[in-house]
Nucleic acid binder design. Structure first.
Lengths: 151, 151
DNA sequence: GAATATTAGTTCGTATACGAATTAAAGGTG
DNA sequence: CACCTTTAATTCGTATACGAACTAATATTC
């Protein structure tokens, strides 16, 4: 991929930088991985989400979420409860310990999100957002269909 | 992170989508993870890079690269050789089996990179690239310094 | 309403990833 | 040239991540 912008690589680099820095920060501030903080943030918007919903929000497979919730449950951050109406469904609820962490970390999260876009004006942010959505929504199709173009 | 664009989340979603789709594709086409393909692509531009150089290119820590190269060496895709001038340094070289895979996968990689940016014109691509570079270069500083803004 | 299919979650084996600690080899510095 | 620091890579323990296989419960279909 020599000549054109190697966009995959650029996304990878940006993601790696942000994920590592965020993990270090959440580890220091709250003793959490950034994914664990993500769980708390999503639950703070709507408590008692199902595993399927949470996995989708976090862009993670359900099989990955299982262990994540296990560890968070051990630490008393969240709690699983069986849904009463559909007994297959497990709902996940915030615990007291998590509320404290959320109080402490949410301002940091907001600040970082703001700073990340600080050098860009409104029109530019719109383009960036459109690009990220395009990739998120179409990556699967684009890549699955890809075959050596000519020949 | 409710009101403003939750940029971290959007990058995360885009990255997850692209990484998963790419991994599936490289698995099918070449039996490789996308990171392993990355190793081959970087070596194809310059063979015999050191572990430190490769890790940096791939946005991965050296400790992560070790196992990666172990597995690729077992499969005969690459080979480690000690540098003669500085005996601490290990250089990594492509093997014959890798050349074949590269032939097969490089057109696919190019095609995907092109498609990912297809809906955007030149000016827009420039903004997107600037944003990704900004994040990659400044994530660490921005996040490390972040503290609850007021209060 | 019994047989079949679908859906929700978990478990399992493996591949990544990290940081911290370790080893080995260079590079200063006095 | 002995000591201290720096650099390159690996190893170790742990946390994620995945897909595939599994279990349990609900839906569908005939």
């Amino acid at each position: 991929m020599p000549q054109q912008p190697r966009i995959f690589l650029m996304i990878n680099k940006a993601y790696a930088a942000i994920a590592r820095a965020a993990d270090k920060k959440t580890q220091q501030v709250a003793g959490l991985s950034s994914t664990q903080l993500g769980v708390l943030l999503f639950l703070s918007r709507r408590d008692g989400q199902t595993a399927t919903e949470l996995a989708k929000s976090l862009s993670v497979r359900k099989s990955s979420l299982s262990g994540l919730i296990d560890r968070m449950e051990e630490r008393g951050l969240v709690q699983r409860k069986k849904d009463l109406e559909d007994r297959r469904v497990v709902r996940i609820y915030l615990q007291a310990a998590a509320l404290d962490l959320l109080q402490r970390t949410m301002p940091v999260v907001r600040h970082i999100n703001r700073q990340m876009l600080a050098p860009f004006d409104e029109a530019e942010v719109a383009i960036i957002a459109r690009f990220l959505r395009h990739v998120a929504e179409n990556a699967e199709t684009l890549i699955a269909q890809a075959a050596p173009p000519k020949e």
